[in-house]
Design a binder for these strands. Sequence first.
DNA 1: TCTTATATTGCAAAGGTTTGCGAAAATGTT
DNA 2: AACATTTTCGCAAACCTTTGCAATATAAGA
Lengths: 331, 331
Amino acid sequence: MTTKATLKNIASMLGISISTVSRALKDHPDISDETKKKVRELADLMDYEPNAFAVYLRTNESKVIGLIVPEISNYFYHSFVASVEQEARKKGYSLIILQSANDAAVEEANLKLCKLNRVAGIFVALTSETRDMATFDRIKSSGIPIVFFDKVPEDNHYVKVCLADREVGKLAARTIFDKKKKKVFALFGNPNISITRKRKQGLVDELKKLSPFIEIATATANNTEESMQATFDILSNKSKPDLIFCMSDEILTGTIMAINKKGLKIPKDIGVLAVSNGFIPKICNPEITYIETSGAILGKKAMKTFMEVLEKGIIKKLDVIESKLVEGGSI
Amino acid sequence: MTTKATLKNIASMLGISISTVSRALKDHPDISDETKKKVRELADLMDYEPNAFAVYLRTNESKVIGLIVPEISNYFYHSFVASVEQEARKKGYSLIILQSANDAAVEEANLKLCKLNRVAGIFVALTSETRDMATFDRIKSSGIPIVFFDKVPEDNHYVKVCLADREVGKLAARTIFDKKKKKVFALFGNPNISITRKRKQGLVDELKKLSPFIEIATATANNTEESMQATFDILSNKSKPDLIFCMSDEILTGTIMAINKKGLKIPKDIGVLAVSNGFIPKICNPEITYIETSGAILGKKAMKTFMEVLEKGIIKKLDVIESKLVEGGSI
DNA sequence: TCTTATATTGCAAAGGTTTGCGAAAATGTT
DNA sequence: AACATTTTCGCAAACCTTTGCAATATAAGA
């Protein structure tokens, strides 16, 4: 095995000191051009790359961001992750992606892992089970900035970026009103998380405000399976709704499966309106009308917020992004 | 700010040496129970956690595995990642997930990042653009084990785990034969990657062997968009095929969009057979018949192989997993 | 030539942990 | 009581880099 490419080895091979090599490689003005050239040539030859751990240890700051998400298969989170990754790369950060599997214990383990790895910061979308924010608080007070996104805690002494969830609900309500639907079945995700509450509230309140004649029934489902079951059940009733509202891709997927299973046709037999990132709606026939929520935009905003927190140390902040209606043929 | 929880601080607070503290915390037999107790109590109180970078620096081995994948939104890769993550966690490893965006340059950057972070090993599914294996070779020879999965290089001096791709093609052929289809349009992904070649070869050869009367036309598409276009074009012909074979979820998605756009009905107007992980097929109506390829199983195998390489230093190995037909109503 | 300023380089400590080896203390043996 | 063992612990080096400060060399000014 050849000599390892370290500052020390380069220094001894060149007969100069370690510090000179270190500075030469960072183009420090103290070092002469001649020396720099020598050093750089040998470093290139030896394929030198600084030992990240030694750098971290010395400087006490890593260039890694932890990202904890219930699951990345989710199309929304995926686009969020992709976007954050891209932005992070630009700033010289890399991402360590962790999945909490919607399990508070795993989430906690992941947090520990982040702390252990001394990440520069953490992005978190909360589990629907998360009750105890103590670990988050401990980490935050240990100096690691945390940016919550999408599924955020209610407390507003946290840094949060999220969708305008109430507005999403309202937009759905207005769409339903415009399309003259009379009997709505609205299917939501886990009721414990704030986005569920907000979207529901936005939808229900706005609908009430728009017309007293629109019936609305709501239900919750924790996953695709439950969503499919709930939809199936409601479609088995004598009096079917004329529109099903799905608050997320996960829910939508189950609903579509159930509608297919029932052999019903969209939009003739039943209308569908979803909140989605667009992937699932676009592979359906007809395409599903949906309210677009862009993970990519949210990711960009999250990274920006993170950099602000890091640089200026902003303590509390809430960022919200808007969303718009994309018409398919499902209503 | 309180004193940092380091070995040094614990030692000085207890009036003992750093090495004693270190050993006490690892339950080293040299240390008396009494001392261990004292140390552990204070360590708990101070919320001590070893500085991972210092440990890495000293031991020169990290507990992080790099995982490079064209994109995680892909359902197959996602289930692979989820599976690897689970297995890795059991062994005390954590994952750093990187996306190459199917771009060889990004892939290379990600490799560098892995090397920089001195990962314990790397799992890679190749980009369809990857030609030059030099960087992989350099990393490998620098002592970091690499396990290729799914999209693997042809050379067999690499460690690889993959699906039985030729068998997948054969199974598709037998299915087509059994279902008495006569005119097949087979749509494949990027022709540069080995799985494309193998699946295609398996399908075409076996079909030829089974019957000389089955017509088959093939085409390639690099993404969902291209797949949709290709399908759309073929369906615009006077003489349509009676079955479309899609080699992956990505391809399938485009095909379904095109069929929907054309207003055709599955299976009446056109049959569909896919190779998939099951997610997309199951949300279609009727469900698509597919040959199942399990990312989860592959992930498990990959992790196992990785551990073997790590522990026993196996140099070359090829692992293959079987797949089976899942009947929907699309043929 | 001597002083002063400037350009280069080196010294050494620090960051937190692990670990081989030697030292001290406690215990056991005759 | 003298010696041999065993138990328990500390010293110090090593992992690799960064950086404040001191040191040397070179050039400029008087």
